[in-house]
Nucleic acid binder design. Structure first.
Length: 871
RNA sequence: GGGACUAUAGCUCAGCUGGUUAGAGUGCUACGUUGACAUCGUAGAGGUCGAUGGUUCGAUUCCAUUUAGUCCCACCA
């Protein structure tokens, strides 16, 4: 084995081997329990980023863990066509060649899109492989493949037939740049510095005027009313009158509606029903006309009179200027407010009325809420269910049609002759009603999330009755970031319930965002993103995986920095070297099983510790506490196995009998292999490389069995080892304090307390505490030339007379006495408290009693040490 | 306007259902090429667990209030 672990050399070779052996693939096996995760399909536009690294590492940890536990596992991978995101990207690319969407036919554009898919769709999949993801690539899916497309049509037709999908003219969010409608979830609100313009509208009866305040003066062209609060005394006389809309010379009414806030602005609001959702609702209440003034590209239309064809922003400038010229602009205030923007291109969205397809959400939301209320679906951490409820309880109908080309085309056909509408799973060639061949399909495609919502069952074969669907559905865990709960998780839940009659998964494991070292979101525009592939190249996939899963709490954001990756890489190297040590001591032969009868306290200690970490790490993994599980395995390997057991083992390896040596090797080997298994879900590559090196075969650790907790492996003798460790630690401490050179070895005298038998541990103490030899005394030493140390195992004496600085040593002992006294006082105080003794659990009280007794004894010893020093 | 989260060592963060002297990584100090590892070892310094009040025998942990920060949702033009 090399001196350092070389991730670059082995990762791709190992991964290839796993794939070739088919370890990621399982067929439904009724004799075992299934465990299934469907991947959140990354966009085909995407490149792996830190969020993916985190998300997929978590899934891989769970899958590998369950696979080793013996479950029939399936991690189902795939990609998302990402309708709008991909279309935006393709258009950007075409723009570089000077091509616009208008230059292409729909078919030509789709050809380009499929080319894109072939070129880039596989890129992120390859990157997922670099991470070590054990996805079943034989079952890889795409949201626009044949099966998923079939599922989409099935669902559309079913919901339409149930009356849950309808078409209507309603106010929607329009992105003038993408030239499509968006759902509410696809609008992001950004604080923007702007103005509040106060405009004067003269009353038609000449009795005065009313001043309205607006953040969007250009929409005044579409005003059809002015509203005030019915309680507002300032305007009481005006309600029912009409005003003359400046620039347009249109007479519009003043109405009263309690929606209007008297305190805001002037207390009078201009009403533009076609371009403001609230105004739209008000117009419905008061039966007021709507005037659409905007084109699909964000320019004004012919209803805008002389401002027609101007882009909205330009129209705004012009209108403000013109109003000023006719003295109708009363004042302009600075004002910051939230402006809706497109989540894909950040263009300001314009609310407008348009004919779109909608899903009636209320009937679908109800069972979806209940499923989470009843814990049929559980969010982990639990608090995210509140976010889910909040959204679901206030849900509005979902606008699902998009004026795009890339995506699932809406399965609706119109007859050009008789106007008949057909909603069909299969493309019709004639009109059902008049048999005309002159039919056309709806031009729009579906929201990309419409197909993602079906992912947990469409990928398993639905609407066909497949064995996979039967066996793996409902899936077990869905792992995703909190930013995607509305878009995706919520929609999968109601879709699963509606179409499968059963939840899509039982647990939703939510994680936070990966941020940069300063805590900022990683983004392209900031240029602060870290490319996971670069990290893998430099530090290895295991180091990357370790650093995104360690030291973070569930659902919380985490910061990512280089020192964290280095620490992770160092850990991989640490295990590597521990393995190297074991490797060079087994003489190329796999040791036989451990003979428990021949194990000593050190062996029993490490076996007990191992048993403990098996128990806890397993429990943590089962409750999705991945970070805690990893922390425990890490601590065990580094702080217990490497720091202590390997060092202890050298005593027997180098100085012991043949049988001791043999058995120690067996323990080393066993503990290492079991540790590797515990670590494997987190760091699959280094564990596999070591495992195969040690076993001397190409048998894989990933299909080996997960370690089981065994209460027979909790040994009482382990406690003695803690005493020995304490002795060693205290001696090292004193030596360091007294600047004893490392190569200076002394005899170590110990007078063990009653009941403490150290006869089999003297070699350990000698080796690890730089002793010349260790002598066990029958009683306490009276020799005042020795440094004495009080430990839980008994008193320790070091003949260091020429090195002892008596004043310094007195101060040290004095300090310890103070500490011990305060500890005694604390314990006494607690035990004097009758309520504590009466109410606290017995073991806690007993602990306190033992503690008090120990410290009293310790104090006596310390005081006699001090006395000796003073003589 | 509603809601969630965060506040613990210089820095980045763990800390499960309340129980001795609160942990890790990194940084810092001193020493160290001891037969796995300098991507390392040994020893050490460093924290009134944001503040106040309450519940409790006992609070970093539970409750309330409060301060500071982050985020989400919402129809204030």
């Amino acid at each position: 084995m090399e001196k350092t672990y070389n991730s670059k050399e082995c990762e791709q070779r190992i991964y290839k081997n796993w794939v070739e052996k088919g370890y990621f693939h399982e067929e439904p096996d009724k004799s075992r329990e299934p465990f299934c995760i469907v991947i959140p399909p990354p966009n085909i536009t995407g490149q792996l980023h830190m969020g993916h690294a985190l998300d997929n590492t978590m899934q891989d940890i769970l899958i590998r863990f369950k696979r080793m536990q013996g479950f029939c596992t399936l991690w189902l991978p795939g990609t998302d066509h990402a309708s709008i995101a991909t279309e935006v990207k393709i258009l950007e690319q075409l723009a570089k060649e000077g091509i616009t969407k208008d230059d292409l036919t729909r078919e030509e554009f789709l050809d380009k899109a499929w080319e894109w898919y072939k070129l880039y769709g596989g890129r992120i999949v390859e990157q997922l492989k670099r991470l070590g993801s054990s996805c079943d690539w034989q079952r890889e899916r795409f949201t626009m493949d044949e099966g998923c497309s079939k599922a989409v049509r099935e669902v559309f037709v079913k919901l339409y037939d149930k009356g849950l999908i309808y078409q209507g003219d309603r106010i929607i969010n329009w992105c003038p740049d993408c030239r499509t409608a968006l759902s509410d979830a696809e609008v992001e609100y950004e604080e923007k510095a702007s103005h509040l313009w106060h405009l004067e509208y003269p009353l038609t009866d000449g009795s005065g005027y009313i001043v309205v305040a607006t953040t969007r003066p250009e929409t005044m062209l579409g005003d059809t009313a002015v509203a005030v609060n019915p309680e507002d005394d300032r305007y009481k006389g005006m309600v029912g009158k009409t005003v003359m809309l400046p620039l347009m010379d249109r007479e519009i009414p003043i109405i009263a509606d309690s929606y209007v806030e008297m305190e805001f602005g002037t207390g009078a609001v201009k009403i533009t029903p076609a371009h403001d959702p609230n105004d739209y609702l008000m117009a419905e209440r008061h039966d007021i006309a709507t005037i659409n003034i905007m084109n699909e590209d964000g320019t004004l239309n012919s209803n805008a009179g002389k401002y027609a064809k101007l882009p909205a922003a330009e129209a705004r400038r012009k209108i403000v200027e013109d109003l000023k010229a006719i003295d109708k602009l009363v004042k302009t205030e600075d004002y910051t407010h939230k402006v809706g923007t497109c989540y894909r291109c950040s263009t300001t969205v314009e609310p407008l009325i348009s004919k779109q397809w909608f899903v009636n959400m209320q009937p679908l939301a109800e069972p979806a809420i209940k499923a989470v209320e009843d814990s049929d679906v559980e969010f982990v951490p639990e608090r995210f269910s509140k976010i889910y409820f909040n959204w679901m309880n206030n849900i509005k109908d979902w606008c699902i049609s998009r004026q795009l080309w890339w995506g699932h085309r809406i399965p609706v056909w119109y007859c050009n002759d008789c106007g008949h509408i057909m909603v069909k799973k299969d493309d019709p060639s004639t009109c059902d009603k008049c048999s005309s061949k002159n039919i056309r399909q709806d031009e729009d495609v579906l929201d990309t999330w419409f197909s993602s919502a079906l992912w947990p069952f469409s990928t398993l074969g639905w609407p066909e009755d497949t064995a996979e669907l039967e066996y793996f559905y409902p899936t077990n865990v869905l792992v995703t970031g909190y930013d995607i709960i509305f878009f995706w998780v919520a929609r999968m839940i109601f879709s699963g319930l509606e179409h499968m009659g059963e939840k899509p998964f039982s647990h939703v494991l939510i994680h936070g965002l990966v941020r940069d070292a300063q805590g900022r979101k990683m983004s392209k525009s900031l240029g602060n993103g870290i490319d996971p592939i670069d990290v893998i190249e430099e530090f290895g996939a295991d180091a990357l995986r370790f650093s995104v899963t360690s030291n973070s709490a569930p659902g919380n954001d985490m910061r990512f920095n280089e020192s964290k990756i280095e620490a992770a890489r160092n850990f991989a190297n640490k295990i590597w070297n521990a393995a190297r040590f074991v490797h060079m001591n087994i003489d190329g032969q796999k040791p036989e099983k451990i003979n428990i009868a021949e194990t000593d306290a050190a062996d029993k200690w490490i076996l007990s510790q191992l048993n403990g970490v098996i128990k806890e790490a397993t429990r943590n993994l089962e409750t999705f506490e991945l970070g805690l599980a990893l922390q425990k395995v890490y601590d065990f390997i580094w702080s217990e196995f490497c720091d202590w057991y390997i060092e202890l083992s050298k005593a027997k390896l180098y100085e012991g009998t043949e049988s001791q040596k043999k058995n120690t090797t067996a323990v080393l080997y066993h503990v290492l292999i079991e540790s590797l298994k515990l670590l494997h879900p987190f760091m699959p590559f280094v564990t596999e490389e070591i495992y195969q090196n040690l076993e001397g075969s190409d048998q894989s650790i990933m299909i080996d069995k997960w370690p089981l907790y065994d209460d027979k492996m909790d040994f009482e003798e382990a406690a003695k080892m803690e005493l020995v460790k304490d002795i060693i630690h205290k001696i090292r401490n004193i030596r360091a304090q007294m600047d004893v050179p490392a190569n200076r070895r002394t005899t170590i005298y110990i007078s063990p307390k009653e009941g403490v038998d150290l006869t089999d541990s003297t070699d350990y103490i000698r080796r690890l505490a730089s002793g010349e030899k260790v002598e066990l005394l029958q009683k306490d030493s009276e020799d005042s030339s020795m440094v004495s140390i009080v430990s839980d195992a008994g008193n320790i004496y070091l003949p260091l007379n020429e090195l002892i600085d008596f004043e310094k040593e007195k101060a040290r002992v004095q300090g310890e006495i103070e500490l011990t006294k305060s500890e005694i006082a604390r314990a006494e105080g607690m035990l004097k408290n009758e309520k504590f003794v009466a109410k606290a659990p017995e073991n806690v009280v007993q602990k306190e009693r033992d503690n008090l007794a120990n410290n009293r004894e310790k104090l006596t010893q310390l005081e006699s040490s001090l006395e000796k020093l003073e003589n």
